[in-house]
Amino acid sequence: MGERRRTLRFAPSPNGRLHLGHAYSALRNLDLAKQSDGDLLLRMEDIDTARCTPQHEAGIIEDLGWLGINWQGTVRRQSEHFDDYAEALERLRALDLVYPAFLTRAQIRQAVAEAEQGGSAWPRDPDGAPLYPGNERTFPDDRIAELIASDRPFAWRLDIEKACARAGADIVWTEEGRGPAGQTGTIAADPAAWGDVILARKDTPTSYHLSVVVDDALQGITDIVRGHDLFHATSVHRLLQILLDLPEPRYRHHALLVDRDGRKLSKSDGDTAIAALRESGASAHEVIRMCETGARI
């Protein structure tokens, strides 16, 4: 049997207009799809239903069309597939790999501050955020049931120690691009560095980590092309793929476009929005050329 047809995806969040960094990533996906005679799919990562709007989605589609970026099939919207993520979460719950976590951000900050004031360095994830204390892992079942019944908000977190033990020691991914430090080839994943990540919340049956691996599997994604900012998160994604028995895609991470001060572009920087550049008189060819040169904006 031959290799599966290569299938890629561009997956923006419709909480604002596209900027040059988004366009660069979309173009990288499109180029690989064309080179491999594969397909490019479009996904809207809109689990944040408060900030993601149909108006922003329409703007993204307008920007992509203006740039000449086409995709195959219909747009997948995460907000329409919460049942898929809830099913995956339930599988992990059945394996006793998740637990309800009730500490607020303020309580986490307090725990970190008290530990550091006492001279202990609190562990932090690759993005610099403090790891969750995980107090609830040792709570008896009746205490957990009492907390849930109290109607307090909570998040479902992955018990990273149990999850890594179940997945086994050899968690790797194939990197066809280069990581932030030039990493390529077979990469040893380190999901434990992220601690007990959030997989869902009481009122939202998913998080980015859970939804992205479920979507990639359901959409048959074979190759994931995305920025360096998500390189280390791949460790969590590979762990979840193993736990949920999902296919392993190939990964190709790329450098990020940055502004004149070397900072990652953001949606709050209106000057680099595709719509703003179009309105200022730039042509699609000129915008694509800006992306290709990787010049500081």
Rank of each mutant, 00 (worst) to 15 (best):
E3I: 14
R4V: 13
P12L: 07
S13T: 14
P14V: 00
G16E: 08
Y24C: 07
N29R: 08
L41C: 02
L41P: 00
T49Y: 05
H56P: 03
G59D: 14
W66L: 04
N70Y: 07
R76C: 06
R77V: 10
R77E: 13
E87S: 11
E90G: 04
D96G: 04
Y99W: 12
P100V: 07
Q110N: 10
E116K: 06
Q117R: 15
G118F: 11
P126E: 02
F139Q: 09
R143W: 12
A149F: 09
A155Y: 00
A155H: 08
D159S: 08
E161H: 12
E161Y: 05
I171P: 01
T174C: 06
G179W: 05
A181N: 08
G182T: 09
Q183C: 07
I187L: 08
A193M: 03
W194K: 11
W194I: 02
G195T: 12
R201M: 05
T204Q: 04
H209C: 06
V213H: 09
V214A: 02
D216Y: 02
L218N: 13
D223C: 00
I224L: 06
V225N: 03
F231E: 05
H232F: 02
T234N: 08
T234P: 06
V236Y: 00
I242P: 00
L243K: 02
L243W: 00
D245S: 13
H253D: 09
A255G: 13
G262E: 12
G262H: 12
L265K: 10
A276E: 14
L277A: 11
R278M: 10
A284R: 11
V287H: 00
V287W: 01
R289H: 15
T293V: 14
T293E: 13
I297F: 04
